[in-house]
Each structure stands twice: as structure tokens, then as C-alpha cells.
Design a protein around this nucleic acid. Structure first.
Lengths: 160, 160
DNA sequence: ATTTTAATGCAACTAAGTTGCAATTGCAAG
DNA sequence: CTTGCAATTGCAACTTAGTTGCATTAAAAT
């Protein structure tokens, strides 16, 4: 369906495009370009990084892929499946990503968006909500160590 | 109070530190390092970018400053005042930032966080919620133009 | 005033992402 | 199935945010 949709819009179904879409579908969680490249190589395909970036931007533009930023300075990408709106809980230490779904939350957020549109006169296109924390697996090691978590961020927060 | 707090923890009250804190207090909205530098120069202070980055990281570490990412590839920083938890609506076109406050939303999010902690066994430290859209001022020009908004992003989404 | 150590500046570096351009390749039409 | 054209790709060089090591400077405690 994704491919057909793209084709109908004049895009070509190139190898790179098809494989990238497939990998993102399989991934099931946000991946960065480095990871995507690793997956491509594993599939026996070497795709230039320029192409990967351009391809992803095309998919973002066509709203097939959604961009997500955690705090490590790189964009991550996730396939947008219909009726699959969700958020993420990210472990500061191991970067493990857990999807978070809550209809109650969506309801409140949608309500709020309507209010913002009315009151602040601001047209909202989308929102991004991320939870940052420490997963169960990393929690013990954090308690043991003298230091703070081995946060994988571009801008590391030093030990307090 | 911020300065006293820092001093009590063994930090020195250097010129750069004091001015940076002041500028962030005055700014009242998230600023990036480029902007912060501009403000410093306007105040007659030239501070090396390394120092600015290091200073901000110190303030983040001490939870005086909060990091926020929109989608233009640079971190923004905002002073954390107590009882001032809020979110942001960002205009894709002009990058104008509007604070969003909603006690209903906080309530729902806190509820959700408790559930995540219980069910997913994930310890949540913080969350980030941003609304992306188009402000009133930019909306007309968008309607007129053939193309998409002049999105100020590192990874621009081309016109469809 | 002296000393200690945090903070600073500098220059060189890293890494994510972009750009211009020439070469390649889908794919539609004949 | 060949041809032509525009979309796509690869490459190399570039941009920009942020980092690091190290020598120097400057708070502030004594």
C-alpha cells in the first residue's frame, strides 16, 4: 500500500526505497540513520548516507515516516501506521524504547489542542511526547554505581 | 537564590555564569546557544562557545535549566522556575514559541506516568511535550504560497 | 597575600546532516 | 524491447552543533 501510494505520486520504486521502507516496517521502533545503515548492510545493501537521508526526508514529507528526537542529538524515524498513534518512554542509560499508548492521554491532548487553536490562535499540526527515565534493567546498576547513568547523549549531564 | 544554591555546592560565581543565568531568566523562553551568544555580546560580554556549552551543561546538571528540542537540530535551554511546568507550541515557519499550560493535561500525564511505572516497570524522570504547528501570523502567507511552509529545520521537508 | 582548584579560552576535533553535480536507473511511451 | 527523460543515486566537499585536551586565568578559602 505504501509503495503503491508513492508510485501514484510519481515516485519511483527503487531498490533503496523499497528496502528502507521494509526495514522501518520491521524495526517497529524509532531508528536513527546509523542504525538504518547497519540494517541495510546486513541486508547486503550499501546505500550512501546522502541517499538514506534524502530517502527518509521523502518519506517524512509524504507522512509515511515520523521524526522523533530524544536527547542524544540524532533524529530517529518511525513508520506511521494508521491508528497506531503512540508515544515513547526512553531509558537514559541503554536507550531502550518502550511504546506508550493511552487513549485517556490522547483525549486530553486533543482537547487541549482544540483549546490552543481557539485561544492562542495557533494551528497545531502534530505533537510529540516523550517520557525519559530509567528502565528496570538499568535501575539496579545505577543504584550500585557511584556515578550517574551512562547517559547516551550528545550533551552528557555529568555526575552530581 | 539560584546563585546561592550554586555557591553552596562549590561552584564559583563567575561573571559568565552570572550573566548567562540572568539572560536565561530574562529570556522567558527557550533559547539556543547561538541566541544566547548574541545576547551575551549585546551585554558586552564575549564568552567562548566552549564555556557557554559547559556552563549550560552545568546548569542542566543542577536542574536549573531544562533542555528542549524542537526539530531544527539544536538544543534549546530554559530556566526551570518552580511551579512553572509547561509545554510549548512551536511555529514551523517562524519558530515562534508559545507556552502551553494545562493542569488537566498535567493530571493526565502524571496519572499515565504512574501507570507506566507500575505496568512497564520503567522509572520516569521527566517528560517532554511539544506541539508543532503554524502560528496565526504565518498562516495567511502559507495559504497564499504554492509551496509548503519555510520550515526552519535542519532536515527540511521539501514542498509536496 | 597565598594557594588551591574551578572555570576559561583556544584550537583542533567529531558527528549529523546538507549540497552541487555528474552518473545512473526506473519506467512510460512508442 | 528500445529509447528518452526525469527521478534517483553516489561522491566529495561542506556546514554546523557540540566536544575534548591542555595550558592559562581567576574565584575564594585560609
Amino acid at each position: 500500500m505504501i509503495l503503491k501510494n508513492l508510485k501514484s505520486k510519481g515516485y519511483r520504486l527503487t531498490n533503496a526505497r523499497k528496502i528502507i521502507i521494509n526495514l522501518l516496517l520491521i524495526a517497529g521502533q524509532p531508528v536513527d540513520v546509523f542504525e538504518l545503515n547497519r540494517l541495510l548492510i546486513k541486508k547486503g545493501m550499501i546505500v550512501n548516507k546522502t541517499t538514506v537521508y534524502r530517502e527518509i526526508n521523502t518519506l517524512v514529507k509524504e507522512r509515511i515516516v515520523k521524526e522523533i528526537q530524544f536527547k542524544d542529538g540524532k533524529m530517529r524515524y518511525e513508520i506511521q501506521l494508521k491508528d497506531n498513534h503512540h508515544h515513547h518512554a526512553v531509558c537514559q542509560m541503554c536507550n531502550k524504547i518502550t511504546p506508550v499508548v493511552s487513549s485517556a492521554l490522547e483525549k486530553t491532548v486533543n482537547q487541549l489542542e482544540e483549546n490552543i487553536i481557539k485561544e492562542n490562535e495557533f494551528h497545531i499540526i502534530e505533537h510529540s511526547l516523550e517520557f525519559i527515565g530509567i528502565c528496570n534493567k538499568c535501575e539496579p546498576s545505577r543504584a550500585e554505581s557511584t556515578g550517574l547513568p551512562d547517559i547516551k547523549r550528545r550533551n552528557p549531564v555529568p555526575t552530581s
